[in-house]
Computed example of a mutant assay.
Amino acid sequence: MRRAYSIIVSAGLAPFLIMGACLVLALSPSLVPGELAGLVRYGPFLLAVLGGAIAWWFNRGQAVFVMALLLVCYWLLVGNGAGFSPDGLAFLRIATLYLIPINLVFLGFTAERGVLNPRGIARMLVLGLQLFVMVMLAGQPDVGSALYQMLDTRFITGGGVLAEIPHPALILSVFAVVVLLIRHKPLETSFAAAIIAITVATVMGPGAIQYGYLAATGVVLAGLAQEAWRMAFVDDLTGLAGRRALGHAMAELGSQYAIAMLDVDHFKKFNDTYGHDVGDIVLRKVARELSHVGGGGKAFRYGGEEFTVVFAGRNAQKAQELLDALRKRIAENKITVPDKNKTVSVKISVGLAERDEDDTDPWDVLKRADKKLYEAKQAGRNRVVA
Rank of each mutant, 00 (worst) to 15 (best):
D265H: 02
R381W: 04
L323G: 02
P168K: 07
V385L: 08
D142M: 12
F65W: 15
D263E: 13
I121G: 05
D265Q: 05
E227L: 08
A258W: 03
I156L: 14
E305P: 04
L23G: 00
G43V: 09
Q149F: 09
L39F: 14
I209A: 07
D272T: 06
M231F: 09
A225T: 06
V219C: 04
L47R: 04
K342P: 02
K377R: 14
R3L: 14
V178G: 05
C22G: 06
L253T: 00
A14W: 00
Q226P: 06
F65A: 10
F175M: 15
D152Q: 14
Q226Y: 02
G205Q: 13
T360E: 13
Q256I: 05
P86H: 14
K185V: 08
I94V: 15
A258K: 04
S349P: 05
V234K: 10
Y374W: 07
Y42F: 15
L27S: 01
F191M: 15
P33F: 11
T202Q: 06
V344S: 07
R301N: 07
M1L: 11
I54Y: 05
M261A: 14
D358Y: 05
G296D: 10
H167N: 10
Q149H: 12
R3H: 12
A260R: 00
Q62W: 01
A138S: 14
G139W: 05
L92R: 00
P166I: 02
A287V: 06
Q140H: 12
D280S: 08
H167F: 05
V126G: 09
A208R: 00
S255D: 11
A192T: 07
A90K: 08
L240W: 02
D236M: 15
V282G: 01
I330N: 00
V346W: 00
D359T: 03
L326Y: 01
R123Y: 12
T238D: 06
T202V: 04
F191K: 02
L181Q: 07
F132R: 06
Y274S: 01
S291W: 03
R60P: 01
A95D: 03
L366D: 05
G275R: 01
L224R: 00
G313W: 10
L116H: 10
I330R: 00
F175S: 14
V133Y: 11
G239Y: 11
E289Q: 04
I182Y: 09
D361N: 13
V174K: 00
T336H: 02
D359G: 03
F65G: 06
L170F: 13
F91I: 08
F175N: 11
